[in-house]
């Protein structure tokens, strides 16, 4: 690992700060870049979906609340993608606008359409619980940049979790219609939970490549920075599932609703397999940037 990589950027983590650090020589290794790319794509796609709520909220106050959450998550996306790009000399925009569907690494939960307000709250609940435990763990990452991004994000996600919990209760215990909609929202999002907590393929393959490098006689020919275990750097989502199971079903019951018993989608978002809703969303997001390749805005 380079010395530079060990220095945590100072101050509150922003994409701009990471950019400055990158100009100063900060660079993620390939495997750290791959890992950050997955986290960045999750956040980017969710922020894109939340952006669809602006000017469409059920009340002005809620429009603004969803906007704040979307902006927080877009901030996380930009930080992760900016850092990921440092591994390959790419910017956040190169990664966001000039990759095609199979090159995206987002998990499928985030791709789903916003649906009605209840479905959005269902996804926000699941996502916030996931992000909350993920970022709290990632704060202790051996990679100081990832740790710093997580440290900023974890405080924001804490509020997001509160927001979705408050609404889960209000919709679940409000009117018959809202309870029905909230239940349907949970039922619609539940099949994507299992994928959310499945292994990080990049962690597995990095571990495998480290093992193979160690056993090969020509170890020296492999640049040290380009390979490397993500041990101590990445968080294994499988280890976070217990927290979800301890928190979410209880909240659902508190809201007078039923923990869904739906099956699970096969997933594969981290491998570039995406649900049908993703392509159109991506086309919309990228259309203008792709009409003007190389342009700056």
């Amino acid at each position: 690992m380079s010395v530079k990589q060990r220095q945590a950027p100072t101050g509150i983590m922003t994409p701009e700060l990471i950019e400055t650090e990158i100009k100063g020589g900060l660079a993620a290794t390939d495997s750290v870049g791959q890992y950050a790319l997955g986290l960045g794509d999750d956040a980017l796609v969710l922020a894109q979906r939340l952006g669809e709520w602006i000017a469409n909220g059920p009340e002005l106050e809620e429009d603004i609340a969803l906007g704040n959450i979307g902006l927080d998550i877009l901030g996380h996306a930009r930080s992760f993608l900016t850092y990921a790009g440092s591994a390959w000399g790419k910017t956040e925009d190169d990664l966001a606008y000039f990759r095609s569907e199979p090159e995206f690494r987002c998990r499928q939960l985030f791709e789903q359409p916003i649906g009605d307000f209840a479905q959005t709250i269902a996804r926000q609940l699941i996502a916030s619980v996931y992000f909350d435990s993920l970022y709290r763990a990632l704060m202790h990452s051996a990679d100081p940049t990832l740790a710093a991004i997580a440290a900023k994000a974890t405080k924001e996600v804490d509020y997001h979790l509160d927001h979705s919990t408050q609404w889960l209760l209000r919709l679940g215990l409000g009117t018959d219609e809202s309870a029905l909609r909230m239940q349907r929202g949970l039922d619609a999002m539940w099949p994507f939970v299992a994928e959310l907590y499945s292994a990080e393929p990049v962690v597995e393959s990095a571990a495998a490549s480290v093992a193979s490098v160690a056993s090969a006689a020509s170890a020296a020919s492999v640049a040290e920075d380009d390979r490397g275990s993500l041990e101590g750097i990445a968080v294994d989502p499988r280890a976070l599932r217990a927290e979800f199971d301890a928190v979410v079903p209880l909240l659902i019951e508190q809201a007078g609703l039923v923990v869904p018993k739906t099956g699970s989608v096969r997933g594969g978002g981290r491998l570039g397999i995406h649900s049908e809703a993703f392509g159109p969303m991506l086309a919309e997001m990228q259309v203008l940037a792709r009409q003007h390749p190389g342009a700056s805005w």
Partner: peptide, 29 residues
Amino acid sequence: EGNWITRAPSLKRKAILMAKVQDEAGHGL
């Protein structure tokens, strides 16, 4: 302006536009 949030050509512009349109909701309020 909300019309362009999902299509903003850079992530920085997307963030700025979201914040701006959100401000307008606040101002209306």
